[in-house]
Design a binder for these strands. Structure first.
Lengths: 220, 220
DNA sequence: TATTAATTCATACGTTCGTTTGAATGTTAA
DNA sequence: TTAACATTCAAACGAACGTATGAATTAATA
């Protein structure tokens, strides 16, 4: 089959690019690094994807397609069960961020590597990727924001949108896993090994996010 | 004075580099862009700083020197007033993150530009800058963590460290100001202009951070 | 003013970048 | 088997990169 080879090459390129973009950033990764790591010819990136930027977009697209579909599916299901009643804020937050965090356990969906890439990219957006991400996410974000508005009818919408923003920031940073200031990595952990730490991250993060979402409103 | 020219050149380079690194990232900014924007000769960067990496370090150093000193000063002052009693968590959070946010209003300390650069860099750390940031911050972070441990003696230290980490993430992302998913920028704001939005950010963020810090602990 | 040091300057070095090309090879279908 | 298409390949392109050099210029010192 003609497709066997090309699909193979495409995937090999995407996997290598995903990992290298995560470790070194977009500008910090060269085509030669990518094709070298993938074991394919230099020209094949431009043949299959057209350009380096288009490759970056495709790296995101193949993961976000599933993520955003799943997020909408989860939200649909919850809203159907609830009927006319508003959802609980914790359900909504769990639906949006829990779905994301679940990718960490699933290597076939990019695992932690892709999550780290996403976390990095959200604060490191070249114009082309910033635009692309906004387009990919727009529907999903609107649906979840609307659900939060309905769940918290007495909270000004501006405040909810801001807190959604803050939640995304805390999550991005947590999954980017950089911990540049060595806040978490340096302490003495006697009773908790690395696996436990990763397993417990979702619950720790979710508690924090919900606490922030429910915090008393600021009085200006 | 011989120093007049060189100090001038140094500062012009640092200002230009700060802005360009913020907008385009480290790898996305060339020496020729920097020296062109600064109106100085290409070779002057290597003359005054030694290399592009050393320039990046100096861009951070001149801002972080003040920030970290101020953070320690504020903490010292609070602890002195409190005597033996532990500080309130809100005081500690305000001391750490409020000091940071106050830089936004002060153009002579880098203003929003530097804050955005810092926010970006914390999730986009090349090895050299990651190491550098950790070194610059270590003392300050240890002091503030210790204050939080003392303020919340019944909360496991691991949880506090994690929540510090989450708070830093929410803050980084908020000040990076990217809002890649257009959560906040796209809505209809009739009663709140751009100035108001920036002015109110610190209070909005602080409420969120404290809510997250005080959230019920997760039960594993 | 003469001498020394500090800084700026134009220019060039060698390397690496993303992309393109055209031939070679592999695959599909008549 | 042969013609048409898809993919891979080695090689090269011009451009841009960070850095280095040595002369020219400016400032400090005596």
């Amino acid at each position: 089959m003609a497709e066997t080879r090309s699909v193979d090459t495409r995937e090999r390129i995407l996997d290598a690019a995903e990992r290298l973009f995560t470790d070194n950033g977009f500008d910090g990764t060269s085509m030669r690094q990518i094709t070298g790591a993938a074991g394919v010819n230099l020209a094949s990136v431009n043949y299959h994807f057209g350009s380096k930027e288009a490759l970056m977009r495709e790296v995101f697209r193949r993961r976000l397609a599933w993520l955003n579909t799943e997020r909408l599916r989860v939200l649909d299901e919850m809203e159907q069960k609830a009927g006319d009643k508003p959802l609980k804020p914790s359900q909504i937050v769990e639906g949006f961020f829990g779905t994301l965090l679940s990718m960490a356990q699933d290597e076939s969906r990019g695992g932690v590597t892709f999550l780290r890439l996403l976390g990095r990219t959200l604060t490191d957006p070249a114009d082309f990727i910033r635009t692309f991400l906004a387009d990919e996410y727009q529907q999903v974000v609107e649906r979840y924001k609307a659900a939060l508005f309905k769940a918290l009818p007495n909270v000004p919408r501006a405040e909810i949108a801001w807190r959604f923003h803050f939640m995304l920031g805390a999550t991005s940073y947590a999954i980017a896993g950089t911990d540049a200031l060595r806040l978490v990595t340096d302490w003495q952990v006697e009773d908790e090994d690395a696996t436990d730490r990763l397993d417990r991250l979702p619950q720790r993060l979710m508690s924090f996010l919900l606490g922030g979402l429910r915090a008393p409103l600021p009085n200006f």
